[in-house]
Design a protein around this nucleic acid. Sequence first.
RNA 1: GGCGGCAUGGCCAAGUGGCUAAGGCAACGGAUUGCAAAUCCGUCAUCCCCGGUUCGAGUCCGGGUGCCGCCUCCA
Length: 473
Amino acid sequence: MTFRLYNTFTNQKEDVRPMTPGIVRMYNCGPTVYGRPHIGNLRSFLFADVLRRWLEYTGLEVQQVMNITDVGHLVDDADEGEDKLQAQAAKEQLDPWAIAAKHTKQFLEDLDALNFRPAMNYPRATDHIPEMLEMIEVLVEKGYAYQVNGDVYFDVTKFPAYGQLSGNRVEDLVAGSRIEVRDEKRNPADFALWKSDEKHLMKWDSSYGPHGFPGWHIECSAMARKHLGDQLDIHTGGEDNVFPHHECEIAQSEAFSGKRFANIWAHAKFLQIDGGKMSKSLGNVYDLGDIQERGYEARILRYTLLRGQYRQPLNFTWDILEESKAAVENYDRLAQDLGRLVKAVESDTTIKSRGSDLVATAKADFESAMNDDLNMARALGALGTLRNEVGRGEVTGEAAAEALGLLRGIDSVLGVIHFESGDLESTIQSRIDARTEARANKDWAEGDRIRDELLAEGIALEDSPDGVIWRRV
RNA sequence: GGCGGCAUGGCCAAGUGGCUAAGGCAACGGAUUGCAAAUCCGUCAUCCCCGGUUCGAGUCCGGGUGCCGCCUCCA
């Protein structure tokens, strides 16, 4: 069965068929580094990570590039207003380069904490000014773009397909929008490729003048081209990127190369908070640090953000985070229980293998759900069913090893399960031993005291028939 | 004004016209346990409303209602 992914461009699920057999070229719209990424940003990046992991699960090599926007993303209208980095720089009283460096570092640290597989490349916009200018020059030469007073605009009327991705018509955009009509533009919907502004702090010399900086959209076109070529298999982003950002990328890249830019455009839906939009005024913009401050591991957030289907809106609440914690700990327990079952087989080869068919069914269900546009909720259902079967003792012997292998495979996509309890400090181990001895002497009070004490320190004890099992909570 | 999405148990969430509507969390009853924990058994929904198509609809069509998003910076 092939992997089908929803393509925003055609509004349908399509087979993922890499142009180069075995290798997927994927470009993910990354962050604008003017602040720490919030959990909404993280959801969309995480979608890219899960997508990449699933492609790898199916045996494909993924050339993944996620850009870092460190200049040119304006806070206001597409062609007016302040550069985001510059605005933040003013607030923090730092220069924009320092702001970008600081938040780029923070971004990469957060990805690492959330167990992202590193992309092949995280190109910075400011490292690709020559590549952008090269594209702009060709677009001007070909007649797709024009310059006015040091600014360069893309003429949307020269690219008839403009609007196809988002389903917008140029006429509607103009009629319904608040795009300010600037006299220097030929058409109100034209967008900027290059801007000139003496006051801009990050600026470059070019044939258009000494004080220029790039428009937001051209960055991605130039970086995608530099690192992956003129044609991509998959291009991702948040749903808000569909228009205008990705629409503009298509126009620029295809006008430039004459080739189809991306085969599949995949977009993650927005994250909501408490049923509504996340906004600074409501004070509900959370980042990884806020989650950790409340005592949740990064992997719990990871699970919360990936447990549903990426095209369904996800409503974040603290209750859901708590629920996810319980669910993830159940997966840990399943992993560790299976580990014990496997060990039992090693020491007792007479244990019969049972449940191989159940494991095979779970595997097939998981894979077909993931192949169906990354239907994670359905995929996790298959895992839950297997978990129940293991709990009932229906999976033993060699089949337990198969189940453990499957679980490792599943977690190669999820990236949240702890398969080993880890090492225990010897002082804690000796206290556990002391408790076991007290219990042997029926000194329940002392035994319970030690158990409560360890629990307060984050070590939970469970008395199984085969001895004490501990886990971190 | 233009475009789009969603509405399934207390909460989250699958369900791609037809066996008893996945799975998770929570809750309750029971087994087990020195007590717990974990585990197991059991209980817990007819799918927003109205109309239609069909032998048969949560699933298709029409009309409502409600929520959300994009069109303007946002992942």
